[in-house]
Protein backbone atom coordinates (compact mmCIF):
# COMPACT_ATOMS: atom_id res chain seq x y z
CA UNK A 1 0.00 0.00 0.00
CA UNK A 2 1.50 3.28 -0.94
CA UNK A 3 0.71 6.68 0.28
CA UNK A 4 -3.00 7.09 -0.12
CA UNK A 5 -3.63 7.51 3.63
CA UNK A 6 -1.32 10.43 4.09
CA UNK A 7 -2.38 11.98 0.83
CA UNK A 8 -6.05 12.26 1.57
CA UNK A 9 -5.69 12.70 5.31
CA UNK A 10 -6.68 10.92 8.50
CA UNK A 11 -10.38 11.53 8.11
CA UNK A 12 -10.65 9.12 5.22
CA UNK A 13 -12.93 6.13 5.86
CA UNK A 14 -11.50 2.65 5.53
CA UNK A 15 -14.06 1.62 2.93
CA UNK A 16 -12.75 4.18 0.47
CA UNK A 17 -9.25 2.88 0.88
CA UNK A 18 -10.35 -0.70 0.35
CA UNK A 19 -12.34 0.25 -2.70
CA UNK A 20 -9.32 1.91 -4.23
CA UNK A 21 -7.19 -1.16 -3.48
CA UNK A 22 -3.42 -1.12 -3.50
CA UNK A 23 -1.98 1.73 -5.54
CA UNK A 24 -1.43 0.70 -9.14
CA UNK A 25 2.22 0.19 -10.00
CA UNK A 26 3.56 3.29 -11.71
CA UNK A 27 5.71 3.22 -14.84
CA UNK A 28 8.89 3.40 -12.75
CA UNK A 29 7.97 0.52 -10.44
CA UNK A 30 8.87 -2.21 -12.95
CA UNK A 31 12.04 -4.09 -11.98
CA UNK A 32 15.00 -2.60 -13.81
CA UNK A 33 13.19 0.68 -14.55
CA UNK A 34 15.56 2.73 -12.40
CA UNK A 35 18.61 1.34 -14.18
CA UNK A 36 17.03 2.18 -17.53
CA UNK A 37 16.56 5.89 -16.73
CA UNK A 38 19.76 6.79 -18.58
CA UNK A 39 18.40 5.28 -21.81
CA UNK A 40 15.29 7.42 -22.26
CA UNK A 41 17.36 10.48 -23.27
CA UNK A 42 17.74 8.79 -26.67
CA UNK A 43 15.46 5.75 -26.78
CA UNK A 44 12.42 7.35 -25.14
CA UNK A 45 10.59 6.38 -21.96
CA UNK A 46 10.43 2.58 -21.75
CA UNK A 47 12.44 2.34 -24.99
CA UNK A 48 9.69 3.84 -27.14
CA UNK A 49 11.86 5.98 -29.41
CA UNK A 50 10.05 8.96 -30.93
CA UNK A 51 12.73 9.83 -33.51
CA UNK A 52 13.76 8.50 -36.91
CA UNK A 53 17.34 7.66 -35.93
CA UNK A 54 17.20 6.00 -32.52
CA UNK A 55 15.94 2.39 -32.51
CA UNK A 56 12.84 1.35 -30.57
CA UNK A 57 14.04 -0.99 -27.82
CA UNK A 58 10.66 -1.47 -26.08
CA UNK A 59 9.74 -5.13 -26.42
CA UNK A 60 13.20 -6.12 -27.67
CA UNK A 61 13.96 -9.85 -27.34
CA UNK A 62 16.32 -10.42 -24.39
CA UNK A 63 18.72 -12.60 -26.41
CA UNK A 64 19.12 -9.87 -29.03
CA UNK A 65 19.40 -7.10 -26.41
CA UNK A 66 22.25 -8.97 -24.74
CA UNK A 67 24.03 -9.67 -28.00
CA UNK A 68 23.77 -6.02 -29.03
CA UNK A 69 25.06 -4.79 -25.65
CA UNK A 70 27.98 -7.23 -25.66
CA UNK A 71 28.87 -6.33 -29.25
CA UNK A 72 28.81 -2.60 -28.46
CA UNK A 73 30.82 -2.94 -25.25
CA UNK A 74 33.49 -5.02 -27.00
CA UNK A 75 33.67 -2.52 -29.87
CA UNK A 76 32.55 -5.19 -32.37
CA UNK A 77 29.57 -3.09 -33.33
CA UNK A 78 31.17 0.36 -33.39
CA UNK A 79 29.03 3.14 -31.92
CA UNK A 80 30.48 6.08 -29.99
CA UNK A 81 27.16 6.51 -28.21
CA UNK A 82 26.48 2.88 -27.34
CA UNK A 83 29.96 1.72 -26.37
CA UNK A 84 30.03 3.67 -23.07
CA UNK A 85 26.35 3.00 -22.35
CA UNK A 86 26.83 -0.73 -23.05
CA UNK A 87 29.65 -0.81 -20.51
CA UNK A 88 27.30 0.86 -18.06
CA UNK A 89 24.64 -1.78 -18.81
CA UNK A 90 27.10 -4.63 -18.20
CA UNK A 91 28.00 -3.10 -14.82
CA UNK A 92 24.41 -2.30 -13.86
CA UNK A 93 23.18 -5.81 -14.80
CA UNK A 94 22.42 -6.74 -18.38
CA UNK A 95 19.76 -9.30 -17.39
CA UNK A 96 17.76 -6.76 -15.39
CA UNK A 97 17.79 -4.30 -18.26
CA UNK A 98 17.04 -7.00 -20.85
CA UNK A 99 13.96 -8.14 -18.96
CA UNK A 100 12.85 -4.58 -18.29
CA UNK A 101 12.90 -3.61 -21.98
CA UNK A 102 11.42 -6.97 -23.04
CA UNK A 103 8.47 -6.31 -20.72
CA UNK A 104 7.69 -2.91 -22.26
CA UNK A 105 4.88 -3.08 -24.83
CA UNK A 106 6.31 -2.18 -28.24
CA UNK A 107 4.56 0.60 -30.13
CA UNK A 108 5.55 0.84 -33.77
CA UNK A 109 7.41 4.03 -34.68
CA UNK A 110 5.31 7.14 -35.24
CA UNK A 111 7.53 8.15 -38.19
CA UNK A 112 5.44 8.01 -41.38
CA UNK A 113 6.56 6.23 -44.53
CA UNK A 114 5.56 6.66 -48.16
CA UNK A 115 3.06 4.04 -49.41
CA UNK A 116 4.84 3.68 -52.76
CA UNK A 117 8.14 2.97 -51.01
CA UNK A 118 6.45 0.37 -48.81
CA UNK A 119 5.05 -1.40 -51.86
CA UNK A 120 8.41 -1.44 -53.66
CA UNK A 121 10.08 -2.63 -50.44
CA UNK A 122 7.56 -5.45 -50.07
CA UNK A 123 8.54 -6.77 -53.48
CA UNK A 124 12.27 -6.42 -52.74
CA UNK A 125 11.90 -8.15 -49.36
CA UNK A 126 11.77 -11.53 -51.06
CA UNK A 127 15.57 -11.46 -50.67
CA UNK A 128 15.24 -11.21 -46.91
CA UNK A 129 12.49 -13.66 -45.95
CA UNK A 130 14.80 -16.67 -45.85
CA UNK A 131 16.25 -15.19 -42.69
CA UNK A 132 13.83 -12.50 -41.45
CA UNK A 133 10.75 -14.65 -42.34
CA UNK A 134 7.61 -13.46 -44.11
CA UNK A 135 6.22 -11.55 -41.12
CA UNK A 136 9.51 -9.72 -40.46
CA UNK A 137 9.59 -10.88 -36.87
CA UNK A 138 12.84 -12.79 -37.30
CA UNK A 139 14.00 -16.07 -35.83
CA UNK A 140 15.69 -16.24 -32.42
CA UNK A 141 17.00 -19.76 -33.13
CA UNK A 142 19.08 -18.35 -35.98
CA UNK A 143 19.94 -15.04 -34.28
CA UNK A 144 17.69 -13.00 -36.57
CA UNK A 145 16.15 -9.87 -34.95
CA UNK A 146 12.65 -8.45 -35.31
CA UNK A 147 12.57 -5.53 -37.78
CA UNK A 148 8.88 -4.61 -37.51
CA UNK A 149 7.92 -1.07 -36.62
CA UNK A 150 11.48 0.26 -36.27
CA UNK A 151 12.03 3.84 -37.48
CA UNK A 152 12.85 3.77 -41.20
CA UNK A 153 15.90 6.00 -40.73
CA UNK A 154 17.37 3.56 -38.24
CA UNK A 155 16.75 0.51 -40.47
CA UNK A 156 18.20 2.18 -43.57
CA UNK A 157 21.25 3.31 -41.65
CA UNK A 158 21.96 -0.19 -40.30
CA UNK A 159 21.65 -1.66 -43.79
CA UNK A 160 24.12 0.92 -45.10
CA UNK A 161 26.48 0.05 -42.24
CA UNK A 162 26.25 -3.66 -43.20
CA UNK A 163 26.81 -2.75 -46.83
CA UNK A 164 30.00 -0.84 -45.98
CA UNK A 165 31.06 -3.57 -43.51
CA UNK A 166 30.99 -1.01 -40.71
CA UNK A 167 28.55 -2.87 -38.46
CA UNK A 168 30.39 -5.82 -36.88
CA UNK A 169 33.20 -5.52 -39.42
CA UNK A 170 34.74 -8.82 -40.47
CA UNK A 171 32.13 -10.91 -38.58
CA UNK A 172 32.09 -14.24 -40.49
CA UNK A 173 28.58 -15.16 -39.32
CA UNK A 174 27.18 -12.07 -41.08
CA UNK A 175 29.00 -12.68 -44.37
CA UNK A 176 25.90 -13.77 -46.32
CA UNK A 177 23.90 -10.77 -45.07
CA UNK A 178 26.64 -8.32 -46.04
CA UNK A 179 27.14 -9.86 -49.48
CA UNK A 180 23.42 -9.43 -50.06
CA UNK A 181 23.47 -5.80 -48.85
CA UNK A 182 26.33 -4.99 -51.22
CA UNK A 183 24.14 -6.04 -54.13
CA UNK A 184 21.30 -3.74 -53.13
CA UNK A 185 21.26 -0.16 -54.53
CA UNK A 186 20.85 2.59 -51.93
CA UNK A 187 17.38 3.66 -53.12
CA UNK A 188 16.14 0.10 -52.69
CA UNK A 189 17.58 0.16 -49.17
CA UNK A 190 15.26 3.11 -48.42
CA UNK A 191 12.31 1.12 -49.82
CA UNK A 192 13.16 -1.93 -47.72
CA UNK A 193 13.47 0.27 -44.64
CA UNK A 194 10.03 1.79 -45.33
CA UNK A 195 8.52 -1.68 -45.78
CA UNK A 196 9.92 -3.23 -42.59
CA UNK A 197 9.09 -0.08 -40.67
CA UNK A 198 5.45 -0.39 -41.80
CA UNK A 199 5.06 -3.99 -40.64
CA UNK A 200 3.10 -4.59 -37.43
Amino acid sequence: MRTIFRLIGGSLSLSVVLASGPAAAGPLDAPGAAKALACSACHGLGGQSPSNTMPVIAGIAPWYFKKAIEDYAAGRRPSPEMEPYAKYVLEAGVDDLASYFASQPRQPTAVRVDAGAVERGRVASQQCVVCHVESGKGDPAKGIPDLRGQPPGYLANQMLLFKADRRSPGDATLKALKELMKSIPDDQIADLAAYYSSLR
Binding site: S49, S51, P80, E81, P84, G153
Partner: peptide
Amino acid sequence: EQKLTPGQSAQWAQNAVGWATS
Protein backbone atom coordinates in the same frame (compact mmCIF):
# COMPACT_ATOMS: atom_id res chain seq x y z
CA GLU B 1 34.50 5.78 -19.92
CA GLN B 2 34.56 8.80 -22.21
CA LYS B 3 34.24 8.22 -25.93
CA LEU B 4 34.49 10.65 -28.85
CA THR B 5 33.20 10.28 -32.37
CA PRO B 6 36.07 9.32 -34.69
CA GLY B 7 35.47 12.51 -36.70
CA GLN B 8 32.66 14.72 -37.91
CA SER B 9 29.83 13.36 -40.02
CA ALA B 10 26.22 13.74 -41.08
CA GLN B 11 25.46 10.54 -39.16
CA TRP B 12 26.22 12.15 -35.80
CA ALA B 13 24.16 15.18 -36.84
CA GLN B 14 21.20 12.88 -37.53
CA ASN B 15 21.78 11.18 -34.20
CA ALA B 16 21.84 14.64 -32.59
CA VAL B 17 18.37 15.27 -34.03
CA GLY B 18 17.26 11.88 -32.67
CA TRP B 19 18.67 12.73 -29.25
CA ALA B 20 16.98 16.14 -29.18
CA THR B 21 13.63 14.70 -30.27
CA SER B 22 13.77 12.08 -27.53
